[in-house]
């Protein structure tokens, strides 16, 4: 397997007027091409901070991240669609900003929109879309710049349960088909063990890796179907115990 991201002993300290906060301490892990990795942990443990660091939006205090010349795409908790732009323009915004709006890239985006059921909505505005459709637009916007690794920060948390199951399936299929690598931050253990093949459990602050689980299902199915698999409950309980003991 090709390594696409190596995180080596990273450490993050915040300074506020009142105190010095140690958010992350000695985190090390490796991500290979095509991996689907979930990061879970207690509330406020620094999961999103870790993702911001991986995305380059925050610096580490010490340690090193090696991107192996791979590019990163980031999908936020909020779909952050621009209300004043059409679906197509929202999907093209990253390409425009990065000055990569070529005919081929636009064609690629149009294909994605077509493939994932948004063709008829390219000239619609985000306000006319359902929650699930908005998420798909946000995902296509992220995929438009053809990143090698996708970082997702609780991307489905704002959705109702049914939509969450559906969009998890959609995202899973899209990312598998596009052969992407995924790092997902979530507070939802069931989402982590159904969507990803590896789960990193973080401890409470200062965050360290408490456990790493390799997730394997005897039948390869969509995330929503994995919830009824025998293995699901075992993984869920083990990870829940890890987090609960924090």
């Amino acid at each position: 397997m090709n390594s696409v991201l190596s995180v080596n002993n990273i450490h993050k300290v915040y300074h506020t007027t009142k105190a010095e906060i140690e958010a992350i301490k000695d985190i090390t892990f490796n991500v290979n091409q095509g991996d689907f990795i979930a990061i879970v942990g207690p509330s406020g443990c620094g999961k999103s901070t870790l993702l911001s660091i991986l995305n380059g939006q925050e610096n580490v205090t010490s340690g090193k991240i090696d991107y192996h010349h791979k590019t990163i795409g980031y999908m936020l908790q909020d779909d952050a669609l621009f209300d004043w732009l059409t679906v197509l323009d929202n999907c093209l915004i990253g390409l425009k900003i990065k000055k990569q709006l070529t005919k081929e890239n636009k064609e690629y985006v149009l294909n994605l929109l077509d493939k994932y059921g948004l063709k008829d909505f390219i000239n619609s505005y985000p306000r006319n879309l359902s929650g699930g459709m908005r998420k798909r637009v946000a995902l296509i916007r992220t995929l438009a710049t053809k990143p090698d690794i996708l970082l997702m920060d609780e991307p489905f948390s704002a959705l109702d349960f049914q939509s969450r199951l559906k969009i998890s399936n959609d995202v899973y299929q899209i990312l598998k088909e596009e052969n992407k690598t995924l790092i997902l931050v979530t507070h939802d253990i069931s989402e982590a063990v159904t969507l990803c093949e590896k789960v990193l459990v973080l401890s409470k602050r200062p965050s360290t890796i408490k456990n790493i689980y390799s997730i394997f299902y005897s039948q390869k199915t969509l995330p929503s179907s994995k919830r009824t698999a025998l293995e699901f409950n075992d993984y869920y309980q083990q990870i829940w115990r890890d987090i609960d003991h924090e």
Binding site: Q57, Y74, I97, K98
Partner: peptide, 20 residues
Amino acid sequence: NKIKLVKTFSNSKITLYRFL
């Protein structure tokens, strides 16, 4: 979140102003 989004594509303040 929108600021974060634009910053994932570019860290330039002028870009942030122009696009968002």
